[in-house]
Amino acid sequence: MDDILKKAIRYAYFFLSALLVAWVLIPEGRPVAAGLILGTTASIVNAFLLRRRIELIGKTAAEHGERKMTLGLAGRLATVLLAVMTAYRFPEHFALPAALASCFLVQISVYFTALTNNNK
């Protein structure tokens, strides 16, 4: 699982690099590129939060047996909400649809990375 997440985050970093180049070279597309950067950053933060939480749940289950524990949904939702509220507050700098759409980039790339790794 960890190698799949690392690959997905690597893809997100490449995407962020391309977006930074687009932000510099295309002045008319700066709000869209900035919105995509904002959402992708929130997606990467969410991936790290989820990985840390899954490791914590696995460690707790190994030490104490089966225990009920949540997956920390509130923290991940707050991260997406912060990105969307920032885009909503500053529409001249960030495109809201771009920010919202890219908030799920790493999660979607984890899915497709797992599918391609499973077919090998």
Rank of each mutant, 00 (worst) to 15 (best):
L5G: 09
K6C: 04
A8L: 09
I9L: 14
R10K: 13
Y11R: 13
A12I: 09
A12K: 10
A12F: 11
Y13E: 12
F14C: 12
L16H: 03
L19K: 01
L20A: 14
L20V: 12
V21H: 00
W23V: 06
I26T: 01
P27K: 01
P27E: 00
E28K: 08
E28P: 06
G29R: 04
P31K: 03
V32R: 06
A33W: 02
L36A: 15
I37P: 02
I37K: 07
I37Y: 08
A42H: 02
I44K: 00
N46P: 07
F48G: 11
F48V: 11
F48H: 10
L50Y: 03
R53E: 06
R53H: 02
R53W: 03
I54K: 01
E55D: 13
E55R: 15
L56K: 14
L56W: 15
L56I: 06
G58M: 14
K59A: 15
T60S: 10
T60E: 12
A61H: 12
H64V: 00
G65R: 13
R67M: 07
R67N: 08
K68C: 07
K68M: 09
T70F: 06
T70R: 05
G72C: 08
R76D: 01
R76K: 10
L77I: 11
A78Y: 09
A78E: 11
L81D: 01
A83H: 06
A83P: 02
V84I: 14
V84L: 15
M85Q: 10
M85D: 07
T86P: 06
T86R: 01
Y88E: 05
F90G: 00
F90H: 10
E92R: 13
H93F: 01
F94D: 03
L96F: 15
L96W: 03
A99S: 13
L100E: 05
S102N: 12
S102G: 03
S102R: 05
S102V: 04
C103M: 03
V106E: 00
V106M: 08
V106I: 09
S109H: 09
V110M: 14
V110T: 10
F112N: 00
N118K: 13
K120H: 12
K120M: 11
K120E: 11
